[in-house]
Design a protein around this nucleic acid. Structure first.
Length: 151
DNA sequence: GCCAACGTTGGC
DNA sequence: GCCAACGTTGGC
């Protein structure tokens, strides 16, 4: 089992929305590195759900991967913001996974919290200019984030 | 709204 | 293959 951090703008898709729906396809990833991470996701992997571009950016709760990577349907949908006319059905360019709501954190683990924790120094999300919407998290980092959530 | 830090595009 | 221009992300 591995851990991942997935970013979403709550205006687009929030953790509260995932809680309501239970499960949701994680679509719209259009970055090759992030896509490769999606393809490495396995059912049961833990997802740290991060809210970005909002009042209080941070990790708000846990989800898990409930379906392994499959072709992201939005790439073939001309009405979608994520439509990619260059992607072919015979050779889909973009993948998505399905994620399932696990549990809310008792409190939001803010960016400042993440930065303050020595064990999280190397966390990819904290690297300047990192814009990947899916990044791997080490078991030690996941543990530290959960500890911050309980603090 | 600003701006730094990227990734992508396309001319050459 | 280089690299400038451009677009996007996301914290602040």
């Amino acid at each position: 089992m591995r851990h991942w951090l997935m970013k979403s703008e709550p205006d687009e898709f929030s953790f509260q929305e995932l809680r309501r729906r239970g499960r949701e396809p994680w679509t719209g990833v259009r970055n090759y590195q992030a896509r490769n991470f999606l393809r490495a996701c396995q059912v049961g992997d833990i997802v740290l759900f991060y809210h970005s571009n909002c009042e209080e950016p941070g990790v708000v709760g846990l989800a898990s991967v409930s379906k392994p990577a499959y072709p992201d349907p939005t790439q073939f949908d001309p009405r979608s913001d994520y439509h990619d006319p260059k992607s072919r059905r015979e050779d889909p360019r973009w993948s998505c996974v399905e994620v399932r709501h696990l549990r809310d954190f008792p409190r939001v683990v803010t960016l400042a919290d993440l930065r303050s924790h020595p064990a999280l120094r190397g966390m990819l999300i904290l690297r300047p200019g990192n814009r990947l919407s899916v990044t791997p998290v080490t078991p030690a980092e996941a543990k530290a984030v959960e500890a911050l959530a309980r603090r």
